[in-house]
Design a protein around this nucleic acid. Sequence first.
RNA 1: CGGGGUGUAGCUCAGUCUGGUAGAGCACUGCCUUCGGGAGGCAGGGGUCGUAGGUUCGAAUCCUGUCACCCCGACCA
Length: 570
Amino acid sequence: MRVSRFLLSTTKETPADAEVISHQLMLRAGMIRKVASGLYSWLPLGLRVLRKVETIVREEMDRSGAQELLMPVVQPAELWQESGRWEQYGPELLRMQDRHQRDFCLGPTHEEVITDIARREIRSYRQLPANFYQIQTKFRDEIRPRFGVMRAREFLMKDAYSFHLDTDSLQQTYDLMHQTYCRIFSRLGLDFRAVQADTGSIGGKSSHEFHVLADAGEDDIAFSTQSDYAANVELAAALPPIKPRQAPGANMASVATPGQHSIEEVSNFLGIGASQCLKTLLVQGANNDVVALVLRGDHSLNEVKAEKLPQVHVPLTFATAEQVRAIASCDPGSIGPVGLRIRVIADHSAAQCSDFVCGANHDGRHLTGVNWGRDLPEPATADIRKVVTGDPSPDGKGEIAIRRGIEVGHIFQLADKYSQALNASCLDETGQGRIMQMGCYGIGVSRVVAAAIEQNHDDRGIIWPQALAPFQVALLPINLHKSPRLQDEVNTLYDELCNAGIEVMLDDRKERPGVMFADMDLIGIPCRVVISDRSLESSTVEYKGRRDSQSEDIPRENIIAFLRNKLSVC
RNA sequence: CGGGGUGUAGCUCAGUCUGGUAGAGCACUGCCUUCGGGAGGCAGGGGUCGUAGGUUCGAAUCCUGUCACCCCGACCA
């Protein structure tokens, strides 16, 4: 490709509304342009990268035995009503009507459509297992689209759906997809982790998210420092403390804490650590009642864990101010577990505290020297907090460390959630109809592009992993317009590179060298070859890798072999 | 949804308080000089100041409505 025939729309200035690096660089490099909030056009440069991701995903899905198909973006309401999601889905589902006032939606995902296909087409167990995938645009009407294509409303996704006669078969394909995803993200050159994830409202036994590790990520991932344990923080178990609770050493006393509400305020006011304070959260119970959740002051409630308690209402809802006053006769900020006449559930680590401080259920007062068993009943205990750095790893090996991750893949077992609702069954060996088991496997293709940049950039621009680069080699002639001889030479070299199957971008603009260097660094081409009258004299060309600090002279006749070697190694 | 902010040239922004008929840098076009890390000069093109209405002799500027975009918030207990 010659730059003179290519839309290379780079800018020096960073658009004001781009917050994260990947968004800034994608705009500056001329990969994407915003059309409306959360909606982007992919310019030629960006599309080349997107296609690279697609190609790798497609190759590995095909290799795993999955079959590609393509389903419509616009889907009829009837299918969604059948699964129950027309009502369940909130405003994220963009609904519309056609000219006949029939209801449709833009597909945020395709379980309904694929299940409809399966129930029509699959008759016999002999056709199973089957795994269908597509690479298709999705639409989710996000409350707050941000970070460019990282959290856009319209995005490109690879989604696959597998069908099985039984759960063993489902597990096998699930495991195969786990391996396939590892292959895909390895080939993409990304530093990623497969982490145990919450199965959410869908339920099912296991679920894994694939995260690219990057500070701009929106999820917290908990790792073991010594094993390969990794889990979404929402899921990571906090083990109960091993040490027994210390015996009470103080008498309970009520102290005035005027205007001190938060744990931080109270602990500062009393001059004690936050871990010596307990916080009490009143939430709606499952039986139209109110439940108190007690945590150590330095810990945070894990809402996902709390929702799994049978006594707690789903979704987790905090008690209203009126309920708080009725139960604790004080404002939030002074609640404590002592004397509460409702169910109290304490986190394991809160239950281990002794001589602690808590709200006195009296505005402007707290209790000190409080002890379970003596001043109030021993509480029911559960794991309801978020793990923190330094906690023991749930698998018993090492400690927890927490890093940010960008979710680029998610696999889970749907079991019969959709096949049951849509009555997707087939005949088994005995001729009996059986509801099929389903798995679901997604990769955010457009998000992968942003994630790759978050992980691979410097102050000059993007540094593409070899597999994602829009072009493999940038060929930069210096002062091309002045030297007919250089023009001949560079054209010859360009043809040689193209014939060698190397994707090369020839900068044939009448630009100064600094401009060309800066542009090629910005758009992140991994290999740079500079050719000039000077190099013609010595029969060499100059090579520099995007991450290299120094260039090296390569004999002209060796350059193709040299580049081939570089490209295969990278 | 609540709170805050911004809409002026393709981009980044000044001008708004104090009304007088629109500017800078970058980008773009032409010419000259320069020529190995985002050069310099000269000349030029480009804006119904988001939009609708109002006040006024006169509105980018003041008032009202409206639309779009951005940021923050939804565990004080």
